[in-house]
């Protein structure tokens, strides 16, 4: 209850975004697609809001995990030559 009142005051008297709005911006932030204005609102919110901050961290760590941990398969040695060969044959 006290938290709700606190949030209400923050949003309505100080122009801060809600947790709901923050979570809507979460993926835009993670993917670098937020506008500068959205980014500023988001940063301001997570500076004061631990749950949203933690959710953002999780989102970022999953993205990072996908980017860095998936095994990259090596391109078969003959693939490029085979493509070039086929192009030459059809030219």
């Amino acid at each position: 209850m006290a938290t709700n009142l606190f949030n209400w005051i923050r949003q309505n008297l100080f122009g801060q975004i809600s947790c709901q709005r923050c979570l809507e911006l979460l993926e835009l932030m993670t993917d670098g697609e937020a506008s500068p204005e959205e980014e500023a609102q988001f940063q301001k919110h997570i500076d004061d809001c631990l749950p949203c901050y933690e959710t953002y961290n999780l989102e970022q760590s999953i993205k990072e995990m996908i980017r860095t941990k998936l095994e990259k398969k090596k391109v078969p040695d003959d693939l490029i030559n085979s493509i070039k060969q086929k192009i030459r044959n059809t030219a």
Binding site: L58, M65, I66, K69, L70
Partner: peptide, 13 residues
């Protein structure tokens, strides 16, 4: 986050 960070490539895959 710590769980995610401990995942290995095969698990992610």
């Amino acid at each position: 986050v710590e769980t995610v960070q401990h995942m290995i490539g095969d698990e992610v895959s």
